[in-house]
Nucleic acid binder design. Structure first.
Lengths: 234, 234, 234, 234
DNA sequence: AATGAATGAGTTTTCATTCAT
DNA sequence: TATGAATGAAAACTCATTCAT
């Protein structure tokens, strides 16, 4: 029922059709609840063919994860100009990220919602990809610190925390941006554009980073400079 | 045989034992992959008793979600001093949140990872709870803006975006903080303490908020004041 | 929820309450679909008490069958004046039968619909009762033949067939009479009274019997006297 | 292992095999007590195949009811010559009915004993079929009355009652005719042939009808003509 | 006289997967 | 390249029945 019936299709094409169907189905139902029957029907082929090409449900899911991960990474990478300043690189990457997730909600749902919750073969794969992104962000933040002439005030672990926070914030905004319209009292603005989402991210994080690079820290009671900074461990 | 065999236990107690087992199992396996058999065995009872008390797998999961949601909300609420300034309230809430998630990884995993991905009966329930938190944060941010004498520069939607970003960042940090030690190259500091996580959050977001309240916005190319602010739509 | 809660009731009374509940439940659901839980709840007692008094589901059903059979037989018997003519005895029995089934639809349903279809322990019990009735009718018909001075024209097997037909007809009318009102185009007469049902029976069967005693038989093509009677076998 | 193992059979054939097995099993055990396992084994296939083809136990039972109903109706219809006189039509239909039920005891048991007692999805289906038969008989009786020049003495409701009685009588005879031989004292004639059963029916009902058409009614105490007829209601 | 707590054994149903063509 | 036919294994759920009090 999914695609129009067309017999004798070359393998590469059929495989993509199957993967498309799988992405949709996994996104809608989750890994366990998605049935090979549904995927095969949506792909417009018989189940044995799915097994012939993709081997097993597990392999199918892995393949989907790999394909979607690569597509996401490619989209983000393409949006980053390697030569530019750190903040512009981050801005580019964020716009790429929000644009991609908005245009590929299925793939994003599989990566962000489904793959992470299905235990070990899959959680690991997707965690690796996320790790790459976090690392990339970490590097950008470090570079930004250097660009800004920050005098090593930012401990490595602080930067890593920042990066994790940043990535989580972006994920949250992506979800919010793409969500059903009924959210929020003011229905006037249903979703956030990719640009606005990226801008929000930059405002929050970049500004925060700027202050931190200046040595300021929030401590209970006051905003203080770095000389009075409270240790974050013991 | 998870728990020690103890016969003839009053219903209320048994129910809690079952819910404990269910939390663990759902967290480990996910909703679909968790079997009632496993839950019953872990609870140290037979399957029929689970059905007698908790009715169905769906009801069991709902009950788990409800119990864990309420516990989380209670923990966060208890950590917030209502009379204090907005930033201290936020600080308290964050510490409460990170402390709770660190001590109850199972409950947090059920809420954050499993419930959200299981389609409509459950996603809605947990979305409502998250919505409450986002709203609470939104109000705090608004209050903070007023406290700081912000002159209405922050549009409602900006604050909402900030709140979503903040919540997402906290979730991400919670996950990172509680993650398996093998993460990262420097194994020296395996996790983030609740306090450090909260501090990271405050530094990032509070500082960012401060700048934004001052009318500064990040725009491609420079950090500028509000007069040159780029539109957030189109 | 069935009866009003009243503790410490003498055994004989409790047993009847349980049997009442069982009749209702078996009538509504059938033997297999009726659950001991439902019966116990309807009886207003706990399940162990049902087992204590009635032993098992099978025994409970048997007891119900026995009680209801005896009640039916008693009702029919009471309606028959032993000294009267055969036709008046039959008339009385039929009125008793229709009256009883109309007033005890549950008991009748258990006997007629449920017990007969539940395989051997029960089908036999209820078949025995029905057999008694058929035999009683057979005797009545025989007596009637004698009363009418029938010259032995009616073979034993013909009378038995007649009796079976008569009983089946009565059962069918009983069901029709007690059925939901929406039956038939002319809703004016929703049900048949016991008297009318009995009259219909008498008209059909008695008249038929009269002719047969006269030696007339229906044969394909004509109504003929006994001299041209076609054999009923071969 | 009911049937001989025969692999790779076309669907249409397998479906009939399954339905055959289902008829037998439902007849033997009843709807609730029949297990899909038993049906599958008797059909010589695995349970999943039964579900694949027939969907669910409920659907399977419905399909059985439909198939058997249609077969019964077809058999009866085929035995009726539409152009003939009412009595000959009735005679034909009765012979067809008794012949069919004798040859298909399983199907008849499912329709007559099981389907009617299983509550609403099924009772209705089979009641509809029985209703058709009753209606057909009603029309025949009406036609017979006209043929015989009956002057409207027979009220519509009387005819309907007659029809119901007739159908019930036939059902009862069918059951008796096909019953296990051990029934009755005289084991010499185990069953009634279809022809004899039909003859018995015709004798009873046709003769009775004849008298009624003549205006005679049985009333307590005497056989009287129509002028002294007692009202049937109140 | 009566019950709250508990279960063994079975039911219907689903699903990933393979065989034969 | 492609599929109709088929199943082993396991899941959710139910129920008659008993134990301990």
């Amino acid at each position: 029922m999914g695609a129009v019936k067309s017999k004798r299709v070359p393998r590469a094409v059929r495989e993509q059709q199957m993967l498309d169907a799988a992405v949709l189905t996994f996104a809608r139902r989750g890994y366990r609840a998605a049935s090979m029957d549904e995927i095969a029907e949506l792909a417009g082929v018989s189940k044995p063919l799915v097994y012939l090409y993709l081997n097993s449900k597990e392999d199918l899911f892995s393949t989907v994860i790999r394909r979607e991960s690569e597509a996401l990474m490619a989209a983000v990478s393409a949006a980053v100009e390697p030569g530019e300043s750190a903040d512009r690189q981050l801005w580019g990457g964020l716009r790429g990220f929000f644009a991609y997730t908005a245009e590929h909600p299925g793939g994003w749902a599989v990566l962000h919602q489904q793959a992470r919750t299905q235990g070990e073969p899959f959680a690991h794969e997707v965690a690796a990809v996320r790790g790459e992104i976090v690392e990339f962000v970490t590097e950008l933040l470090g570079a930004a610190a250097k660009e800004a002439g920050c005098v090593g005030e930012l401990a490595e672990r602080e930067v890593a925390g920042l990066a994790h926070a940043l990535v989580g914030a972006a994920e949250s905004l992506a979800e919010w941006a793409n969500c059903r319209t009924d959210e929020g009292a003011s229905g006037e603005w249903a979703r956030l554009s990719a640009k606005d989402a990226a801008a929000t991210m930059m405002n929050v994080v970049w500004a925060g980073l700027g202050r931190m690079m200046g040595g300021e820290r929030w401590v209970p009671g006051e905003l203080v400079g770095h000389e009075s900074r409270s240790g974050t461990r013991g």
